[in-house]
């Protein structure tokens, strides 16, 4: 079995990464981690659309897990993210985030990923007091 690559065709969290760059980062991550890489799929461009992602979740029986470009391509809604984690872990699979080089495979790693999400969403409300800096 192997891991399905997943990339975005739209911006996420004010980031835009060319699709071929997302693909390169995923391929490199799989190479370094020794993961067997299946061809990637590309999410549709419509805002908040996860149709393609849900198709991968439906095929989890046939793969080891998912390698997505960034953890910030997960849904903004926390309850939806938790639902995804639950589905993946219940099937004893994992999801990897290539650019962050992080992975989610147990309850502890959920906390790690969600801490990053919580701070990311909170820091948007903190003052950007240094000229020229963007918030993380």
């Amino acid at each position: 079995m192997a891991y399905r690559g997943y990339i975005f065709s739209r911006n996420f969290m004010e980031e835009r990464v060319p699709q071929h760059v997302q693909n390169l980062v995923i391929r490199d991550y799989c190479r370094v981690k020794n993961l067997n890489y299946l061809l990637h799929v590309t999410e549709y461009g419509a805002e908040n659309c996860y149709i393609v992602f849900h198709q991968i979740l439906d095929e989890l029986d046939n793969i080891d897990g998912i390698v997505m470009y960034s953890l910030f391509q997960l849904p903004l809604d926390k309850s939806k993210r938790l639902g995804i984690y639950d589905k993946i872990l219940r099937q004893k699979k994992s999801i990897h985030f290539a650019v962050e080089r992080l992975s989610l495979f147990n309850a502890q790693s959920i906390e790690r990923i969600e801490n990053i999400w919580d701070v990311k969403q909170t820091i948007e409300n903190c003052p950007k007091i240094v000229e020229g800096l963007s918030n993380g």
Partner: peptide, 18 residues
Amino acid sequence: FTPYGDKKLGEFFEPINL
């Protein structure tokens, strides 16, 4: 909760002791 630069949260930094 201080401003991040190009070394971003998730890609480069993570909170370790919230």
